[in-house]
């Protein structure tokens, strides 16, 4: 089933995919064991003439075993998940000194990308606003100030394993580092109105030289 996952092109994507695989195998094994046992029981203990069921009220020992076993599995899984989650979402753990900072703003039904320009400050004359086109260099740390001007949208880049809701009047920081040049879709993943389906932006990941050329073209010096 996991071959259906889109290609992973972010530095933290592998961590997400590893957990995905781990849970996949864990749940598959549990599923096969439980359903296998169920089928065996259904065949073996089907009603047969002259054979009665055995009166069993339960087993405290078994109850303790499967309660404890499930609890242990749950906590082990949680332990492996905390660091991945914090790495992707906790602003205090973001890589510092980003190479690019962009403000992405959802608006029925587009993504507005605002670049601060050479002065690195938003709200100045050299800001550049692009509709639905986000340009970043490959292998560079990108910080996004995510917001919305109307309703809740959700910034989703499947290949980056990244999704974050965009809220009106709130700036949420998001980071990623793309590892492969290319053009990737940015659908909106939260219902935002009649144009929700088809609200689509593009993430253009350029080789460093191409990106520099793009910057040069936009802000000639």
């Amino acid at each position: 089933m996991l071959q259906w996952l889109p290609e992973d092109v972010s530095t933290f994507g592998q961590g997400v995919d590893n957990l995905f695989h781990a849970i996949y195998w864990l749940t598959l094994i549990v599923f096969v064991l439980v359903i296998g046992t169920l089928i065996v029981f259904l065949i073996k203990y089907r009603h047969q003439e002259g054979k009665r069921a055995t009166y069993i009220e339960g087993s405290t020992r078994l109850e303790i075993v499967w309660t404890a076993a499930t609890t242990v599995i749950v906590f082990v899984l949680a332990m492996f998940s905390y660091p991945q989650w914090n790495n992707i979402k906790s602003p205090t753990q973001f890589p510092e000194n980003p190479d690019v900072v962009v403000q992405v703003s959802g608006k029925q039904f587009n993504w507005d990308m605002t670049y601060p320009g050479p002065d690195n400050e938003f709200g100045t004359d050299d800001d550049l606003v692009l509709e639905n086109e986000l340009h970043v260099p490959v292998n560079a740390i990108v910080h996004i100030r995510l917001t919305s001007v109307d309703v809740i949208h959700s910034f989703f880049v499947p290949q980056l394993r990244l999704k974050q809701d965009a809220l009106p009047n709130r700036f949420i920081n998001v980071w990623f580092e793309a590892t492969k040049a290319g053009r990737y879709e940015i659908p909106c993943a939260e219902l935002c109105g009649f144009g929700h389906s088809g609200m689509l932006g593009y993430l253009n990941v350029h080789a460093q030289a191409d990106y520099d050329a793009w910057v040069q073209e936009r802000w000639p010096q």
């Binding site: 029981f41 069993i56 109850e63 749950v74 906590f75």
Partner: peptide, 26 residues
């Protein structure tokens, strides 16, 4: 963490249903 803990009572219930069928006359 709290959400994954729900797996515990859910597992108890599932195993108990299996246990009910064990050596039954279905």
């Amino acid at each position: 963490t709290t959400t994954m803990l729900i797996a515990v009572p859910s597992a108890i219930k599932t195993f108990n249903w299996l246990g009910t069928m064990f050596r039954g006359s279905i």
